[in-house]
Each structure stands twice: as structure tokens, then as C-alpha cells.
Design a protein around this nucleic acid. Structure first.
Length: 636
RNA sequence: GCGCCCUUAGCUCAGUUGGAUAGAGCAUCGACCUUCUAAGUCGAAUGUCGGGGGUUCGAAUCCCUCAGGGCGCGCCA
């Protein structure tokens, strides 16, 4: 990953254009050239207009290699008809060394045809850069924090967490490649009711582990005696109970409390509802149970993430933020800004919940930052809402110098986006944007039938099951074959199918074919594959070879577009297209043996094609690297 | 009821941030091919971009509206 070559200072003029590596992004290069020519032609063109000038591949390849809207953009400020301006522009552009033809077209486009040597020169650029080809500086070294997964440490990861994990990880990789300074982060929700319930469930498992008669402490008895609800009854907590039993022996067994036999200082630290029912359970025991459970669950989650190839840089514990006073600090910060007040919320418009009653709460003026209503920070019992803790957490990220926050959430949290954005705007004085990428639910299918999942019935699929069944690469690739906010069907049979319509296979196969060709060439004569970045390339002239070269040259642009849109799935589509171009070329070698990569009778053409093949493999690896998918050397 | 997201070929989905005659794969039909690694090539057919209105040189893309689907809607995280 190349380091950004330059950071854009905040004070730089709005007209300044990003600096591009001239040899690696031909679209950026052409854009600069076109803007330069246009600026010379229309000297008083406003910079905003110049910035809107684009050079893109036209949809219809018959129009040429590139098309620019420059004349359409500049026509009004220049007070010239767009077609006339296009003609003038075309004349100048035709003089550029890499342009062989520039023609005005349509309402005022200029179509450009590029010199084929210029295009072919991309191959050595690819080969010299290696997988760093496509690295960009558009991120300008901005410190971006991508937070994803953040699954509650109350159980193993299941498929529901998987999409966010893959999307977040790939997005982070993508931003890194495009020049952002990225931190991958996980927020551990180890405070609040759910981990409280985890503590009880673990304590219950402990009781069953230490007692001689586990049936005595079945779930129903336990709930009744202590006045609690055992929310997490899955077997995965048995190991936690065993660990507690091993470490603490019978030291955490509850005691019967019969009329005043227990010292007052002990009852003070006991769980009250249980005490009322005649059982002494120390709060400290529950804390211990919870702590060990969280630690063991997090260890398991991190193992699962490692299986998926996800390794985050920073894990932030909600509890430690709370204990360090971060929440109170954040509340005070908002208070100092005059953004808090005690008030009563209106019931939601239209539908009023049955148990609605007006009550005064501490409210944050989210409406001042674009939210629909003000949002509560404290519950009626005075404790903080999750939102308050989340504000503290995001303020912490801002305090750590993060300049762009990106959260990857499940779509069921969509209603939470605007308040969180309001809060981040408030605590950062509008300096730090929060962007939220929502991931829609994944429906797991098997043989065309939906796989029903129920947490209560224990029939949900764990992430580990999924990886064992189809493999990490298939999981990661497939999760990126849809826009993240579109619903997705994950068909267990289809993702391992070896066919054209399985992009996982199709892309992997293209890479394997490339490697196979290079291996064969090397086996025949190692000198064939030496110094491929220096070989003459004029032998590459067939339309399908040029199409592949054009696709390779578009990789840097695809990276930038995907990163700007925060849409890592575009990388998957690019790779599928690239694989398609390569397979076409491969298959043409069947009909026309002169198009085969290795031709014993023509060493020059062979070397040129091997350069093309090596460049293709390089870009596939570069793209798979962003996706976190391992390129395979051969298909089995 | 209110808010957000979605609706593109028979199916599954792209659509380069407002560009030219809206694309790909699958399926269908026709012809060909049997491999440097088998899962192949070429051609044909396929559209009210959910409906309607607006913005402008230009709209699948932006705005309004209607219909259908999903998600959410104060002391869960």
C-alpha cells in the first residue's frame, strides 16, 4: 500500500486538483489534460465549472476510448454554443501526444481515441507497481475510522453479523488503498442489560457445574429462586460455567438466608430480588461471571473474525468508557454547549404506543442538527440511555483525532442514523462527518429453500458453520456481490458451484488460468517470464487484447469511484468484468491458435502476452486483496 | 399514521454520482466448437427503468405525487 504522496491542506485553494501519479491513472491524466486545454480556451472559466469537467469511458465503445463533457459544462460561462466549443476543444485535444483522434459529437461531447502504445504502456506500469497498482491519493491521508461488526459479546457470531463484517473490512481496505489513513475498529458493548443477562446465564451455568445435582439448578428453579429471567440458555455458555467453577470452586454458591443469620454488610452487596426470595447472591459474583463470560465470548468472536480474515486494529470497551467517566464528560460537553434540556417528548406521530405516558427526560437538541425530534439521554430512572453511551464513544473517536467516522450497521438500526449524525456534529463542532453504511439482511438458502433461523430454538447458523461449509473466500466474495443496502440471498449451493454465473469461481478461475500460463511458460524456458515490464508490446493488437488492456487501465479509476461512493461491492463487479475479458481472450485462443498466449514459433509475441497475463493476474490479486479474498494458483 | 430505504429484460442484478441508441449473466432460439485446465464461441430476440407530473441542453439518476415491498418509530442495545 503506497503512502499518500501529498496531504491536501485545508487551506488549499478550492481550484487545486488532486495530484495523480501520471503513469498509473490514465483517466486522471486525461482529465487534467482536458481541463488544462479548456482553461486555456476559456480563460475566465469559474473553478467550480472546471471541477465538473469529466473524462470517462463512453458507454458505447464505438464512441472511442474516452469522452468528455467539457464543452457542455463550459458553454454557458463561455457564452458559446456547446457544439462550437466542442469543435474548438477537439482540435486542441487532437494535438495531445496520447490522443490519436478527437471528434465533437452529440450535444457537445468530445470523443477521444487513444494511442494504442499509450494504452499498452499501462502494462509495465502495472507490473512495476505490482499489487500497489490502483493505489490512489484521493483520501489525502485523512484519518478515517471504520467501525464494524461490534456484535454484542453475548454469544458466537452468526450469519447476521457476517455481512457487516465483510463489508466493513473491505470498505476499510478500499479506503486504505485510495489514500485514507484507516483505523479498523470494533465497539464492545460490554455494559448494559444484555451483558447483565449474560452474567446471570453464566452464573447459572456455574451453579450447574459446581453442584452435584445439576437438575436442582435447572433453568426454571434458578429463575424462580433469584427472581431473574435467563435470556441466554445456549450451550455455548457451559464452558463459561466450567471455567468459573474451576477458578472459584464452591466460593460463589448462593446461600440460604434464614432470619437475620447473615451479617448486614453481606446483604448490602447482594442482589435484592434474590434476597427477598431468601437467597444471597453477591453482586460481585455476578460481576465476576459477567467479566469472564465477556472475555471468553470476545475471545471466541475474535477467533471467528480471524477465520473470516478480519483483524481489527482497535477494540473499545463500552464499560471502560463508562467507568472512565466518558459518558458524564460527553453529557457535560453537550450541556456546556447549551444542547440539553429537561423536557417531555410528544408521542410518535399517528401511532401512540399503548403504554405511552408523558414524562420529563434529559433531551439532546438533535433537531438543531437535522434530526426530526430531540432525543433522550437519560431513562426515567436516571440511568443513561444507550444513545448517551454511544455519544461518548463517538466523542472518544473524535478525541482520538479521527477525521472521518464510518459506522457499518444493520439496516434495523436505520432509524438511529440521523440522531447519531446530529450528535457527532454537535460534539465535533461540525468538523467530523459521520457516515453510516447500512447492511440489509441476508437470507440463507439451501437447495432453493430458505434456511429458517431461530435463536431461541438454537437453529441459527453460526459464522463458523458457514465458513466451514463454503469456505472463507466464497463467503467474503459473495457478501460483496450486492450493494450493501440491498437484500441478499446467500445460496449455500450456488456459492460453491463451479460455473460461469458464480462470480467467486469465475474470478478465481481467471487468476488460476493466468498463473497456469505463467507456470507453463516458466517451465518451458524461465527466460520467457523474466523482466516482463521491459518487453516490447506492439504484438498486442487484437481487439480482445486491447479490451483487456483498457480494463486493466480502468482499475485505478474503479478504486477511486468505489472508495468515494463507499461501495466495496463495485470491486467485485469490476473483477467479474475483468475476468470476463480475460476468459474471452483465452477462449479465442481455441478458435485461433495465433492468439494463444504461448507460441513456440514467436518468442516476441509470447513475451508480450505473458506481460499481459502477468498484469491481469496482478490486478486480480490487487482487487481480491481489497476484498480480503485469497487468489488461488490453481483450480482443484 | 410518520420517517428512511427499495422497485431496471422472463429470472438474478449492474448502471462509472445528470450524459449520447439503458447493460451483463442466466434462461430462450439458431449456428459452431471439444480445449495452453473441463465448466466454450458467435449471432438473434428481450424493456412504459413501478405509474404520473416537474426541474434542464440532457433524467433510470434530482424534486413532487401515487401504488407496491422492506426497516424503524420515548425508559432494547
Amino acid at each position: 500500500m503506497a503512502t499518500p504522496r501529498r496531504r491536501h491542506g485545508v487551506s488549499s485553494a478550492p481550484t487545486s486538483l488532486p495530484e495523480y501519479d501520471m503513469t498509473e491513472n490514465i483517466f486522471a491524466l486525461l482529465t487534467q489534460e482536458v481541463r488544462g486545454v479548456l482553461a486555456a480556451l476559456v480563460p475566465d472559466l469559474p473553478p467550480e465549472a472546471l471541477a465538473r469537467v469529466q473524462v470517462e469511458p463512453p458507454r458505447d465503445a464505438a464512441h472511442g476510448d474516452m469522452a468528455t463533457n467539457a464543452a457542455l459544462i463550459a458553454a454557458k460561462p463561455a457564452r458559446m454554443p456547446p457544439q462550437k466549443l466542442a469543435a474548438a476543444l477537439a482540435e486542441k485535444l487532437a494535438a495531445l501526444p496520447m490522443v490519436t483522434e478527437a471528434t465533437p459529437a452529440g450535444p457537445g461531447f468530445v470523443n477521444l481515441r487513444l494511442d494504442e502504445d499509450f494504452l499498452r504502456a499501462q502494462l509495465p506500469a502495472v507490473l512495476r507497481a505490482g499489487e500497489a497498482y490502483g493505489d490512489s491519493t484521493i483520501g489525502a491521508g485523512v484519518r478515517a475510522n471504520v467501525e464494524y461488526v461490534s456484535a454484542n459479546p453475548t454469544g458466537p457470531m452468526h450469519v447476521g453479523h457476517c455481512r457487516g463484517a465483510v463489508v466493513g473490512d473491505a470498505l476499510a481496505n478500499l479506503l486504505k488503498k485510495a489514500g485514507w489513513d484507516v483505523t479498523k475498529e470494533y465497539y464492545v458493548n460490554d455494559a448494559g442489560n444484555q451483558v447483565g443477562a449474560l452474567g446471570w446465564a453464566s452464573y447459572w451455568r456455574y451453579l450447574r457445574a459446581v453442584t452435584l445435582d445439576a437438575d436442582e439448578w435447572n433453568a426454571e428453579n434458578t429463575e424462580q429462586r433469584f427472581g431473574v429471567t435467563l435470556q441466554y440458555r445456549g450451550d455455548y455458555l457451559v464452558a463459561v460455567g466450567d471455567a468459573l467453577a474451576e477458578r472459584h470452586g464452591a466460593g460463589m454458591m448462593p446461600r440460604r438466608v434464614e432470619g437475620g443469620t447473615v451479617p448486614e454488610e453481606e446483604t448490602l452487596s447482594a442482589y435484592a430480588p434474590a434476597l427477598e426470595r431468601g437467597w444471597l447472591v453477591k453482586s460481585a459474583w455476578l460481576d465476576t461471571a459477567r467479566e469472564i463470560a465477556v472475555a471468553m465470548m470476545m475471545a471466541e468472536i475474535r477467533e471467528d473474525l480471524a477465520l473470516l480474515g478480519v483483524e481489527q486494529d482497535v477494540f473499545v470497551s463500552e464499560r471502560s468508557l463508562v467507568e472512565a467517566g466518558a459518558v458524564e464528560g460527553a453529557v457535560r460537553l453537550l450541556e456546556d454547549k447549551g444542547l440539553l434540556y429537561e423536557g417531555v417528548l410528544e408521542p410518535p406521530k399517528g401511532k401512540t404506543p399503548d403504554d405511552w405516558e408523558p414524562r420529563p427526560q434529559t433531551l439532546f437538541r438533535a433537531t438543531e442538527f437535522g434530526d426530526d425530534v430531540d432525543r433522550p439521554l437519560r431513562k426515567s430512572d436516571g440511568t443513561n440511555t444507550y444513545f448517551a453511551n454511544d455519544i461518548a464513544y463517538h466523542a472518544d473517536k473524535v478525541g482520538r483525532g479521527q477525521e472521518l467516522l464510518i459506522d457499518v450497521w444493520g439496516a434495523d438500526h436505520g432509524g438511529y442514523v440521523s440522531r447519531m449524525q446530529a450528535a457527532v456534529r454537535a460534539v465535533s463542532d461540525g468538523r467530523v462527518p459521520l457516515e453510516v453504511v447500512l447492511c440489509q439482511i441476508v437470507h440463507v438458502m439451501k437447495a432453493g429453500e430458505p434456511v429458517r433461523m431461530s435463536k431461541r430454538a438454537g437453529t441459527y447458523i453460526t459464522l463458523r458453520d458457514l465458513i466451514e461449509e463454503v469456505g472463507r473466500d466464497a463467503v467474503r466474495f459473495t457478501m460483496l456481490t450486492r450493494k450493501s443496502d440491498a437484500q441478499m440471498e446467500f445460496d449455500l449451493d450456488k456459492v460453491v458451484e463451479q460455473s460461469r454465473d458464480n462470480p467467486v469461481f469465475y474470478v478465481q478461475y481467471a487468476h488460476a488460468r493466468c498463473r497456469s500460463v505463467l507456470r507453463q511458460a516458466e517451465a518451458a524456458d524461465a527466460a520467457l517470464v523474466a523482466d516482463l515490464a521491459d518487453v516490447p508490446l506492439t504484438a498486442l493488437a487484437d481487439p480482445s487484447e486491447m479490451a483487456l488492456i483498457r480494463r486493466l487501465a480502468a482499475w485505478p479509476r474503479s478504486v477511486e469511484a468505489a472508495a468515494t461512493a463507499r461501495e466495496p461491492h463495485r470491486i467485485a463487479f469490476y473483477l467479474a468484468d475483468l475476468a470476463g475479458d480475460f476468459h474471452v481472450l483465452w477462449n479465442r485462443g481455441r478458435d485461433d491458435s495465433t492468439l494463444r498466449f504461448i507460441r513456440t514459433e514467436d518468442r516476441g509475441a509470447t513475451r508480450a502476452r505473458l506481460a499481459l497475463v502477468a498484469a491481469t493476474a496482478t490486478v486480480i490479486r490487487s482487487g481480491l486483496g481489497v476484498m480480503g479474498v485469497t487468489p488461488v494458483e490453481e483450480m482443484r
